[in-house]
């Protein structure tokens, strides 16, 4: 920890960029075997995250319920363990980002960029999500049972994003791999500049984005859709259409396909 004096203020900082460098895990959870319940009311973002991490790593808890998350931002980030996490309430923006392995349930709503950069795991949002849900995810399932905002799955590199309701504009913008399943309607610019992957829409599409075209829905697609929606208890509208990249913007030279593999 370092401290410098700037003007009349002493600024303390940590090389990791922690905004609350002195925060400690509150250790107020009720632990019962491999399960724990934590009341987050009145706690800061960092205290909540430290407590979750303490339970997983130090107490070997596998199933955590967080009450009163209070729609705080950046809750439940960087969880790199197999576990179950249940948030009883809503999360703000960047909720459960950078995760690898957990199975998360949020009983309320979430703000921007939920589950961004998820590597693996399952995130189920019982209500609506803001824009940029699943930004740049590389794997896992992100399930939003309500509606989602704009640019869902921007730069998606793998995994599956499911919306039980409608999706906003530019859904699948710059998508590189993976799948999106939108059970309701999709806004303007669907799949704009997507490189690869597939978007399934059960309702109306306002307009397609650049280089996005409709493709044939195969038997494998139908089987996958039925399976995924059944797992998560979402009604299958039975009217899905499939959208993919037309590949007219693919202008790679002989080296770039190999480089693409590294990127993807």
């Amino acid at each position: 920890m370092d401290q410098v004096v700037v003007g009349e203020r002493a600024i303390r900082y940590d090389a990791r960029g922690l905004v609350e460098p002195d925060a400690v895990a509150p250790k107020t959870s009720q632990i019962d075997g491999e399960r724990a319940t934590f009341d987050a009311a009145g706690r800061s973002t960092r205290e909540i995250n430290l407590e979750i991490r303490r339970l997983l790593v130090e107490e070997q808890v596998k199933d955590i319920t967080v009450r009163n998350p209070g729609a705080k931002h950046s809750i439940g980030v960087a969880i790199l363990e197999r576990c179950k996490l249940r948030f009883e309430g809503s999360l703000g923006y960047f909720g459960v980002g950078l995760i690898d392995g957990p199975e998360v349930q949020v009983t309320g709503r979430v703000g921007w960029s939920v589950a961004e950069n998820m590597m693996s795991g399952v995130v189920v949002i019982e209500k609506n999500a803001g824009s940029l849900a699943g930004a740049a995810i590389r794997g896992g399932d992100l399930v939003i049972k309500g509606d989602v905002g704009a640019r869902t799955g921007i730069d998606q590199k793998g995994g599956t994003i499911i919306s039980g309701g409608n999706a906003g504009l530019l859904t699948g913008f710059m998508m590189q791999r993976g799948r999106q399943i939108i059970c309701g309607n999709a806004g303007h610019g669907l799949g704009d500049s997507m490189y690869d992957g597939a978007i399934y829409v059960g309702g109306r599409v306002a307009s397609l984005g650049v280089d996005c075209v409709e493709a044939e829905l195969t038997g494998d697609d139908k089987e996958m859709l039925e399976g995924k929606l059944h797992y998560y208890g979402i009604d299958n509208p039975g009217t899905f259409r499939k959208f993919v990249c037309a590949k007219k913007l693919w202008n790679y030279d002989s080296l770039e396909p190999n480089e693409r593999k590294l990127v993807l």
Partner: peptide, 30 residues
């Protein structure tokens, strides 16, 4: 071995060919 009721992120993993050999991509080390 994976979270959830199905293959989760492994659904995206396929057998590739690299330098003439069957290969699989490890995204943890690119």
């Amino acid at each position: 071995a994976t979270p959830g009721p199905d293959l989760n992120w492994l659904e995206d993993i396929h057998l590739l060919v690299e330098e003439g050999m069957p290969a699989v991509f490890d995204r943890y080390s690119n």
